[in-house]
Structure formats: structure tokens, C-alpha cells
Amino acid sequence: MSADLNFARLRSAGAASLRTRAGVPPTVLVSFLVVLVVVLWSLFPSLFTGYSPVNGDTGSKLDAPSLQHWFGTDYLGRDQYARVVYGTASSVTSALVAVAIGLLVGSAIGLASGFRGGWLDSTLGRLVDMLLAIPGFLLAVVIVSSLGFQTINAAIATGVSAVAVFARLMRAEVIRVRRSAFVEASYLEGGNRLQALLTHVLPNAYRSVLVLAVLQFGTSILVIASLAFLGYGDPPPSSDWGLLVASGKTYVTAPWLVYAPALVIVATVLSINRISRWLRNSK
């Protein structure tokens, strides 16, 4: 047994764990690729398709997917691929807005209540409980119905319904870090609360909040697509992914009108979830 442990074997003893830490799994690479394509679609849609998302060729209505029309055409002869590509900007940007709202407001609440503690913590805690008490999707529906049916309002509604999740996590993280020795040491060195917060607590607490933000980005795409599906986003001729699925479902003979945008949604969210899981496990 001990004879086997020569120098070469000992030297490579940690190699397996090194490899897993250094290399990026292939599924994660594919996921990054999908997200990159989606980002490019939303930034430069005209580079990816020559067709207009608004004007169709009435001569080719409800055509099946082909080399000319990758995702087929809809009831006005519009290229479905072009509609998906041009709908990316609002579908993805609105999810980013939603995450930004949840992240900023939620983190601020969580930071304040975790760092300050006491009455502020219990007051903010009840507020967070209040937000959690209303089912997320229902809360989003109520807010968007109140603000008006637009994609940006759907984004705001989705963001507000995500505030509580961020606040909870941030509070837990801050409490975990606040009690550690290096934070107490910074007080001993004469640092004040704000300094400790900015230089020690935040940098150590933000990591898992960031992982949640990535996960929440995927969830927000789903929620906003669901709101658009119900008709609570921008009206046609805009082409949010959820709206495309909703308007496609009328044409039973042209199932690709539903499947193409649906697949794009699933691929995007799946990739984002995979990246989030990879970030969580590799920290």
C-alpha cells in the first residue's frame, strides 16, 4: 500500500480537484453561447435577419419552417424568426429591469435590516413578510393591472415581486459576515460602521446575492413572458416572446408559431439557470 505512494502519484494527488476548478464544463460553455446569441439578438437584431418583424409578405401566409423562413411565417406572412429576434430586446431588457429593481431595493432592505438590527430589522422584516404573503405572480398581475398594460410595467411588477427574495438573502448574508472576526477587528482599528459596511460586509456578502440575481434573471424572463402571454405587456405589433406564443396558439395548423418562440424561451432560461448553478457551485 505505502509502496504505491511514490512522488509522481503524490504530486498529482490534487489534480482531479484542480481540473474541475479550472475547466468550465461543456454545458456551461453552451449556456454562455446561448446567452451571447440572445444578447446579440437584442442589441443588433438587423444583423441576424433581413426580414421585417412588422411587414409581411401576404403571399406566404402560415408557411412551414424552411430555409427562407427558419421559424415559418405567421398569419400576415411575417417571418417568425425575425419576430422572435426583434422581440428579444424588450423580453430581455425588461427582465434586466426587473432584476435591477429586485436587486437594488431588496439588497438595500436586507442590508439595512441585517446590519442595523433591532427595531429596523423587525419593521423591515414584517414588510418583507407582507410582500412574501401575496403569491408572486398574483402580486405582479395586480401591480401591472394598476400601472397599465405595458412591457415596462410588467418588468416593474416582476421586480417588485422579487424584492422580498433578495432582501431575505442579503439580510442572512450580512448577519453571517457581520459577526465574523475580521469585521470586529476593523472596529478595533478605529473603523466606523459605514467603513466596515463598505469595505468588509458588502464585498463578502454580495457573492451569493449575485448568484441569486442570475437565477432571478431567468425567472423574470418566464414571469414577463407569462404576463405578455396573458396580454399584459405591449400590444401587437410588438413581438415579446410570450405574446408570440399567445398569438401563435390560435393557428392549430401552424404549431411552429408556438414551438419556435417557446423553444427560444426554454433555451434561454435553461442556459441562465445552468450558469447560475455553475456560479453557485464554483464559488
Binding site: G218, S226, F229, G242, V245, A262, V266, R277
Partner: peptide, 22 residues
């Protein structure tokens, strides 16, 4: 579970209707 979380509710419903009803 991660796959289930990535498929919107309405897509599952539409696919089930398309396959099993139509």
C-alpha cells in the same frame, strides 16, 4: 428540476393540449 423550472407554464399547457387533445 432545473429543466422543469425553465419551461414556462403556458408552454407545457399548450404542448399537452396539442399532443393529447388535438
Amino acid at each position: 428540476p432545473s429543466f422543469f423550472l425553465s419551461v414556462p407554464n403556458f408552454v407545457i399547457g399548450l404542448v399537452l393540449i396539442e399532443l393529447f387533445a388535438f
